[in-house]
């Protein structure tokens, strides 16, 4: 089991952070285009899901999976979006994404007055705390090869 990569978007679609641990295939486009495409896809999925749902939704879109990976999604009421791609063996990790928001983003970015919101996170401390956290997850294992 493993974590492939993680994106953090703000309410305006700006990619605040991106990390990868185990990514075998790149998208074939530049990173900016990839962020825009990812954000656009999520935006459309949310709109799609709210129209398609037969009942009133509370949390909305949670995850999707393909034959090779699973994308997990978590959004706060302030529009911050945490997106994590893992392999297929991973179940519901909404609480993990919530922890990334509350223990890492809020602590190391929001509470740091030198970090301005609404632009890519420069803080090295944030990056390293996030990295340590993800590596310590029970479903993370650095694969050989």
């Amino acid at each position: 089991m493993t974590v492939h990569n993680l994106y953090l978007f703000d309410r305006n679609g700006i990619c605040l952070h991106y990390s990868e641990w185990n990514r075998k295939k790149q998208a074939g486009i530049s990173k900016e285009e990839e962020f825009k495409l990812m954000y656009g896809m999520l935006f459309s999925i949310r709109s799609f899901v709210s129209k398609m749902s037969p009942l009133d939704m509370k949390e909305g879109f949670l995850s999707f999976q393909t034959s090779k990976y699973k994308l997990h999604y978590y959004e706060t009421p302030t529009g911050l979006k945490v997106v994590m791609n893992t392999d297929l063996g991973v179940g519901n990790i909404r609480d993990v994404l919530h922890q990334i928001y509350s223990y890492i983003y809020v602590e190391y970015v929001v509470k740091n007055p030198l970090c301005s919101l609404n632009e890519t996170i420069q803080s090295e401390l944030f990056r390293s705390k996030l990295d340590t956290f993800v590596r310590s997850l029970p479903f993370f294992s650095a694969r050989a090869g």
């Binding site: 492939h4 185990n22 295939k25 899901v49 009942l55 939704m57 949390e59 999976q65 393909t66 034959s67």
Partner: peptide
């Protein structure tokens, strides 16, 4: 992020 992936096969929401 993986080679040879299909498109979306399952999409899950709370409802």
């Amino acid at each position: 992020p993986e080679q040879g992936s299909s498109g979306i096969e399952v999409l899950e929401t709370d409802t």
